[in-house]
Write a protein that binds this DNA or RNA. Structure first.
Ligand SMILES: [Mn+2]
Ligand SMILES: [Mn+2]
Ligand SMILES: [Mn+2]
Ligand SMILES: [Mn+2]
Lengths: 155, 155
DNA sequence: ACATAAATGTAGCATTAGCTACACTCACGA
DNA sequence: TCGTGAGTGTAGCTAATGCTACATTTATGT
């Protein structure tokens, strides 16, 4: 492979050595940190919409985790101002929580639709989207929406 | 255990109440657990290819983490049989590590190409792919490949 | 040769997210 | 009324991933 930076000619000017790559990884880590929060608020909003309430046990069951794990994550939601709850009662979303849930739900659908549109089987699309959705930036979502719209009118 | 969902019709046969959803979340969690390993082996392989060696400090710099963090993750790579290293020398990949690196690199390119193909700007594509790649199943990758191939021949 | 800089290693801490085990509450049926 | 079981809460553990601070080793330059 080509001449390397560390063995580079002494005379070259100091270059930042591409912090770009590091920034990308950093973004992925940041996105990942919100992934759990996002899945919880989306699910809680769904449960409230369908059942009128969201109980810790039900959340745990749907996510496939133990109930203490769900409780601990809900504690984080509360800390971050996304949810509220009081002993032996259900879990509720704050305004911020509801807003986030709406964005997350729309994004989820968009990612799934996109995957299906390019030929991914439905179940794989749903499964993969559950992880991929948290890494789709605004620019990417915009592109997805446009792609789907064009495809729709083009039929 | 009266596993009957409180909202379900009384007469219906016991249904597992969609473990599907839980399984999807479980898959996403599993994928996430390998994400760091995958990024490390890919990067280490690149560094070896380009520089002839991969040093902990360089890996840390590229990933945007502190060097002890990189060292700790490399320790996990070693534990999982993907890499080797000895005090004050570089990091090397095992056969398994090299194989994984190859798969990961190919997958990364495929995901990026796909995003670009549907209109995502290059930098966003690279950035988002860094996280999304770890959640693309075989079925999805196959669909991506086919989509790109068709698109290619179709002009 | 040797002082010093850079790389590497190690210790110790925090947070997140998972688990099991156990304790407490409350709603409901006998 | 009062048990009892499901739901909820709490304690305490693990593992992964991040950090800073400091110690040690290797490499470098004079
Ligand atoms: Mn998700
Ligand atoms: Mn989702
Ligand atoms: Mn990645
Ligand atoms: Mn990658």
């Amino acid at each position: 492979m080509p001449a390397s930076p560390s063995h580079a000619p002494a005379a070259t000017i100091e270059m930042p050595e591409e912090p770009t790559h590091a920034l990308r990884f950093g973004k992925a880590r940041t996105a990942q940190a919100s992934a759990v929060l996002e899945d919880y608020v989306e699910l809680i909003a769904d449960l409230i919409a369908v059942h009128g309430e969201a109980r810790a046990t039900e959340v745990a069951k749907r996510l496939g985790v133990s109930h203490p794990t769900a409780v601990k994550s809900v504690a984080r939601l509360k800390r971050e101002g996304l949810a509220t709850s009081r002993p032996y009662r259900g879990i509720f979303l704050t305004d911020a929580g509801r807003q986030l849930a709406d964005r997350v739900r729309a994004r989820h659908r968009l990612v799934v639709d996109m995957l299906v549109a390019v030929g991914v089987p439905a179940e794989a699309a749903e499964s993969d989207a559950e992880g991929m959705e948290h890494h789709a930036s605004e620019a990417t979502l915009k592109a997805f929406a446009r792609f789907l719209a064009d495809r729709g009118t083009k039929t």
